[in-house]
Amino acid sequence: MSHFRVFFKKEMVEHIRTYKLLIMLVVFFIFGIMNPLTAKLTPELLEKFMPEGVLISLPEPSSIDSWAQFYKNITQMGLIVTVLVFSSVLSSELSKGTLINLLTKGLSRTAVIMGKFAAMLTIWTASLATAFVTTWGYTVFLFSDDYSANLFSSVFCLWLFGVFILAVLLCSSTLAASSYGALLLTGAAAVCLAILNIFPKAWKYNPLSLAGKNMELVTNSIMFSSLSYAIGVTVAAAIALLAAAVLIFKRKQL
């Protein structure tokens, strides 16, 4: 068996037994349910708690509101939980020294980084798919309209942004000494992207657009093709970050 497959298998076992897979799936499932439910119930609850006699006219909620909840929750809480869950993916092994035995058996350091990334990618994909399918199913169940467009292309953008963030996290972990350091670096990277978005022209290339323009895709106000530069930059950046992670890790004295 190749080292990559061996280490990927070990990573998956680790994520299952240390409850990381469970947390991710349950959290994203709960998010998936909450989105259409919040969209549906918010107007009703507002009406109930309004004082007697006050008349408010709220627009009838639609599938658009449900997807708005989805992109708000996943891009904020969803990504934060993901980064927190995986923040110690490398630092715990380095601080405890669990890799020493395996590396002195000839395990390649490239396989360590790639195996870790592939396992995080698998769990992120499965979790996002869980949230997406749940929200989709209940949105269809609760709102029988066809206002929402570009469902797959918009969730693809969010998925790709998540992949990019995981690459940032892994690269940060090879640089930082602790999981807090890795979190800090990842947060700093996110802040940099947000600052970049101040320049109006930057959004076209900014990976952050993949997590910010989703609703505009759903409401059909922008074309998917307008994000193609941002997608290209994100893919290139993710690959570069992974290559950097491998190079840094190879030079690291353990």
Partner: peptide
């Protein structure tokens, strides 16, 4: 509310309780 939305609330409660019990 529960009567109307049980197909959506029930899985939510089950997921929360499962997470809590784990």
């Amino acid at each position: 509310v529960f009567k109307e939305y049980w197909p959506i609330l029930l899985p939510l409660i089950i997921a929360e309780v499962a997470l809590m019990l784990a």
